[in-house]
Amino acid sequence: MRTAIELLVNGVLLGGIYALMACGLNLIFGVMRVINFAHGEFLSFGALLGVSLVIGFGVPFLLAVVLVAVAIGLFGFLMQAALVERVVDGPPIMSLLLTYSASTVFVNGGLLIWGGGYQGMPGVFSGSVSLGPMNLSQARLVAFTVAVVLTGLVYAFLAKSMFGKAIRAVSEQPEIATVSGIAAAQIRYLTFGLGGLMAGAAGVLLAPMFASDPQMGARFVIKAFTVIVVGGLGSYVGAFVGALTIGVVEVVGGYLVGQTFATALLYFLMIAFLLLRPSGLFGVGIRR
């Protein structure tokens, strides 16, 4: 029983970070119907940049989260402005191929900058906290808390601010939004930047838990795909719920059948959802 609760809590904690990554990915999909294959590299760049700042320059961890999030957000903004904007109205395969190839270029760039080795963040939140009968890793608790706060802030931004309302307008009715005087292109830049910001922050938050390397992005982006398929493509809340679900499935599944089979299980879960319930738990449905 204690193990079960501990697994459940650990799954939710992991899911919180997936949420940060997947909500951004889903926001991008909602606004421009583009699936960003390079989202994993936002995460890995965030993690590695975080390690460089914290270990190399002695920047405090939470400050590093903010700095990296802003940097990766800017990176996403520029990527949209320079690349994705050109194919946004084309057939989906073009944007898929473009972000897929961008992802390989980024991985290669990351290998040149940071080398191929694993980089850890030793000594940062390495302790554990006793919560009743459970022992929880400090790093996971901090990461979860920051991730949930950030996801909530972005949600509030989407719900309340003018920019946020404009993003939702473009996501739901692009033509009418444009006619109503919303500069759709600017909204797309902003959305991509926001997605980058969230994924970059998620990367730094992951760094104390897992060793980071430039090729880690692919492992996480496919998990984020699973999350948004399960939660529902285009739905912010769906991505959040989906992320917690996937976190729990991964941790509990890993305990029951081993890590590699749990990974395979996630992919089969994604394919099953694509086939049986393509709109996911909260999806906006498929706009072809």
Partner: peptide, 28 residues
């Protein structure tokens, strides 16, 4: 029969996930 019910980006992601699933199985 199963995968071709998906279209466009969905088919692409589904197949991508499938290759990764096979890879994970080969590892496991």
């Amino acid at each position: 029969l199963v995968m071709l019910r998906l279209r466009g980006s969905f088919f692409a992601i589904g197949m991508f996930g499938l290759a990764r699933a096979f890879e994970a199985l080969a590892f496991g």
